[in-house]
Design a protein around this nucleic acid. Structure first.
Lengths: 149, 149
DNA sequence: GGATATTAGTTGCTTTTGTAACTAACAATG
DNA sequence: CATTGTTAGTTACAAAAGCAACTAATATCC
């Protein structure tokens, strides 16, 4: 039975995840920032709209787990640069449907393609037989975090 | 052979890593923030000093991959609260050795113990036979990121 | 050994995030 | 149908991160 005295913080899962996340995100971040001047949250909003079609800001908050103020600002920025447009939802004027513009779709397609390439480059470091295990584990952790803690 | 058209961004590795990292970090973050009022960078500085003994700020930057301004401010904060002390290095007055104080050691011990518990809680979600694979993959990704990209 | 470059670390300023308070629209309840 | 509560989103203010310029000490190279 392992105990706390032999525990190495370098192996602490949240730490490893953070390190792995920042290392693997860096190149891709340079790409979308350099090419389109996007912030991470902006890219994520594009990604979710591109993937799921029209959504409200709250939909994005829920799916992407981003706080509403961040989404609000990202949406403003993307609207200003004409990457998305807002359209009122009929019977409820509180929320609006957000949709990528033609231009936004183009950016989405490019970044999705780039993401695919980056994903392959990152995965290239992982032995083939572990790749699906890794992705499955991460999906699990991304879903609920530490669970009951 | 997979191609970009069937690629699902929800499976994009950097994205999954970021989501998994933030989900799994949250509870632990509440712990050290709530109990000691530490920021993430401050906790990391404590962690590296506790694990490796006396280090210079640059050592920490290198090992922890944190920018020097962040380290500089974290060190100031920790020194002010008497969690670490600086001591001049003999033949080179540019850098200083940073060491946890007695009090800092106590905090370190507590957080290390807590990290151990959190690690177990997080890992509990992962099938036993995948746990070492997962950690190994993450260590690899944390090391070099996307490599050649 | 004096000019230039490099290394260590800090400070100032700008951008981004986080938190909480706020407006506006709708829903529910008496 | 007014009162209270809830939901959607924005805005204002404070904390933190990022970047670039700066100081100070040492190394290098003519």
């Amino acid at each position: 039975m392992p105990n706390s005295d032999t525990f190495d913080l370098d192996d602490f899962l949240p730490y490893l995840l953070n390190q792995a996340a920042s290392e693997t995100s860096l190149e891709f971040q340079k790409y979308y920032k350099g090419k389109y001047g996007l912030l991470q949250t902006e890219w994520r909003v594009i990604f979710h709209l591109g993937r799921n079609g029209t959504m409200t800001a709250t939909d994005i908050c829920t799916r992407a787990r981003i706080h509403k103020t961040k989404v609000s600002r990202a949406v403003s920025g993307l609207e200003r640069r004409r990457y998305l447009s807002r359209r009122a939802v009929p019977n409820d004027r509180r929320h609006e449907g957000l949709t990528l513009t033609r231009q936004g779709e183009v950016v989405y397609a490019d970044l999705r393609e780039a993401a695919f390439r980056f994903d392959r480059a990152v995965m290239a470091q992982i032995p083939r037989q572990n790749r699906e295990v890794l992705r499955r584990c991460l999906r699990q952790l991304a879903r609920v975090g530490a669970g009951a803690g």
